[in-house]
């Protein structure tokens, strides 16, 4: 465990799935040199198979103090080959009248975007942005026989030492979130670095800074004056993804409230559209309690009363969402 932990809170009630975070990350870090297929930050649709495909069933994580076995996703079938278009033939040589993909992808990020689940009028989905969780008990770190993965004392950021990594991919197997990626060009594993070069200069990670929906708060868990401490520790309004994997993530989520379900006559019921059981599988047993808290605070605000939690989540001023020093 590191001395301090920098963490991120993502409010799923505000995420609109615009992928600005994805693009911000990609342009900054992964649009070149064998990283083209990698999405250190991705936004997937839940329910859904996600990216890489079926990552939740890919194994890894902890069973007590023992690492669970897992699989390495394949580029073509699970991540998805980056699609190339026939620009040359269609636009310049004129040998093909149609602009189209030159490969036939079997899967890509967002392959099942917006599909969700449920039958009309009770169909539902929400967006789930995912980064490396910079876990307190990282399975990737434990799995590396070379000690190439380390967790920084000063902020808990988990990094792969590129000079030590030999591309064995035990970390890819061990990460239950499949947020470590193998770079086939350099034969090394790489992952989200929480934009540490930015963070060291007091600038938030690109995904958080560029987020147009203002869903991402960044701060130290122990900084009582910071937004993350307030939402996670003081208000206990944020939960980690798949806590049953045992890695103790440091990316937190404010779970999504949903519209009421309709009954056979088309009348709204008291039951939420997104089944609580589904959210409990994703975020653990406290989901119901947190949703109750959010509803209560939201009604307060609606009645014109004060709510610190709602003010935090509304994020009137973007700079107040980040406190990273």
């Amino acid at each position: 465990m590191s001395k301090r932990q920098l963490a991120m809170v993502m409010d799923l009630n505000k995420c609109i799935g615009c992928q600005t975070c994805t693009v911000a990350c990609k342009v900054q870090w992964t649009n070149r040199n064998g990283r083209d297929y990698m999405y250190w930050n991705n936004v997937e649709t839940a329910p859904g198979k996600g990216y890489p495909k079926n990552w939740q069933e890919s194994g890894g994580g902890w069973e007590g103090s023992v690492l669970k076995d897992g699989k390495i996703p394949s580029l073509a079938n699970d991540y998805g080959m980056p699609v190339q278009l026939n620009y040359e033939q269609a636009l310049f040589a004129g040998t093909d009248p149609w602009l189209k993909a030159t490969n036939d992808p079997a899967w890509t990020p967002n392959w099942d975007e917006d599909e969700g689940a449920g039958e009309f009028p009770n169909s539902y989905h929400f967006y789930l942005p995912r980064i490396c969780n910079h876990c307190t008990n990282p399975a990737c770190l434990a799995a590396c026989p070379r000690g190439a993965i380390y967790k920084r004392e000063e902020d808990g950021i988990v990094l792969v030492d590129q000079s030590r990594c030999r591309g064995y991919r035990h970390c890819v197997v061990a990460c239950p979130y499949k947020k470590v990626y193998f770079n086939p060009l350099f034969n090394r594993s790489e992952k989200c670095i929480f934009c540490y070069p930015r963070v060291e200069q007091g600038i938030p990670p690109a995904c958080a800074k560029q987020c147009v929906g203002r869903i991402r708060h960044v701060g130290f868990l122990d900084d009582e004056a910071g937004p993350v401490h307030k939402i996670v520790v003081k208000w206990k309004a944020a939960l980690t993804l798949r806590p049953d994997f045992g890695t103790e993530p440091n990316a937190y989520y404010v779970p999504p409230l949903s519209s009421p379900k309709f009954d056979a006559e088309g009348k709204p019921t008291a039951e939420p559209r997104i089944p609580v059981a589904f959210l409990e599988k994703l975020f653990g047993p406290r989901v119901g309690e947190v949703l109750g808290l959010l509803e209560a605070e939201r009604s307060k605000k609606a009645r014109g009363e004060e709510s610190e939690l709602m003010d935090l989540l509304i994020a009137y001023r973007q700079e107040e969402m980040f406190k990273i020093r």
């Binding site: 699989k71 390495i72 996703p73 394949s74 580029l75 073509a76 890819v172 193998f182 086939p184 060009l185």
Partner: peptide, 8 residues
């Protein structure tokens, strides 16, 4: 062998 551009 190392198949170019594979992860697994």
């Amino acid at each position: 062998d190392v198949k170019q551009g594979t992860t697994d």
